[in-house]
Design a binder for these strands. Structure first.
Lengths: 195, 195
DNA sequence: CGCGACGTTGATTTGCCTCAACGATTGTGG
DNA sequence: CCACAATCGTTGAGGCAAATCAACGTCGCG
């Protein structure tokens, strides 16, 4: 588990053995079983979570009780309610496990100590955030400009791993459509295959 | 101008006079007149731009030729094509001026030198990015869960400054609706005022 | 003055949602 | 190990929000 996180880190920065050891020592391993809640909306988000295996998801419930999925996190992804974590406000998101999962978690306090002791990691988190920012930006554009069927096609092309792990109505909730409508789309796609 | 940027910086980190001086020395002032292009999509984005006054916008043109606005940048906002800037790939976004504007710009090379020389600023950009990430995340949720009229009401509540600066069809392109439909919404809102 | 940018209005169409019902599969307690 | 309940995906009918298309009035500006 620790090695997996370390090799992830090395994509961004090259820690010395000492830095790497300290870094890893701050992460506590944990397990969640399917459906288990990691963070309940309304509470404070106290940790940043790195997914080693399995799948977590973050979602928001809107005024009509509808669930909107913000993110799926499979192996080598991070997940948290960033707003709650950074600004110490109650979380708007709920995070739970879609499958049995192993994680590594660092508390906010340890995280801040880490950055003070080894500013090198500041760089790593900045680069990670840039990536997340870019992909969120693309998702905004896609939601505004691309019809439902193409959004689905893009999704299964770019996230085949997630597609095989989570049920289809979860994908619908991520793409911003109803499960019924996603079903229509799939029917249409299947029939088009004979042409 | 420089003082405006400095006071912005101080929201995040406390630079020493020496750090502040070096930081500011890397930013070159510039002006754009209304409609002038700052970055053409397809080219490389070479600078990060801080808006001192006026208003820039970034947008993407989709397959149907429709324009989708990613961001308005008024005073004290940053704007760039982050993906192009960080990964050295052709920009997908175009940036232009919606009004005569004053800016301060730093090149990618100077930016990297800055972070090597004074890692303190790494922290600042990480915190800035967190904020941008959080607001993008909220926009994704809003676009999926909130009807057009409420998105418009939220926009004019939270961005009255922008609303007064840019024409309405630009706001429509930001909110993901047609100008005609925004017009309908405004008519309905106006008539509701007499009740 | 004349043209282009901007906002408005109305008629029509369409993409997607709602609601309701129904198999198939999974899983779980008795 | 069976029975029953959830969970999941599918189908169809009907409805609504928002897009499209077309026309028009107004204003600011070269």
């Amino acid at each position: 588990m620790q090695e997996q996180l370390l090799s992830y880190v090395k994509r961004f920065v090259q820690p010395t053995p000492e830095e790497a050891k300290y870094f890893l020592s701050l992460f506590k391993p944990g397990k969640y079983i399917k459906k288990q809640i990691v963070l309940q909306s309304g509470e404070l988000c106290l940790v940043e979570t790195f997914v080693v295996s399995g799948c977590l998801r973050s979602y928001m419930v809107d005024a009509d009780g509808q669930i909107h999925i913000v993110q799926f996190a499979v192996a080598n992804w991070w997940i948290s309610d960033m707003e709650s974590l950074i600004r110490d406000v109650p979380a708007k998101l709920t995070i739970d496990a879609l499958a049995d999962s192993e994680v590594l978690q660092i508390t906010k306090a340890d995280f801040e100590n880490l950055l003070i002791k080894f500013p090198k990691f500041e760089r790593m988190f900045r680069l990670m955030l840039s990536n997340a920012f870019i992909s969120h930006q693309r998702r905004i554009i896609d939601n505004l400009s691309i019809p439902a069927m193409d959004r689905y096609l893009n999704f299964i092309k770019n996230h085949r791993d997630i597609e095989q792990l989570v049920p289809q109505h979860q994908i619908a909730a991520y793409l911003g459509m109803t499960p019924e409508f996603l079903s229509q789309i799939r029917r249409k796609l299947a029939s088009e295959k004979f042409s």
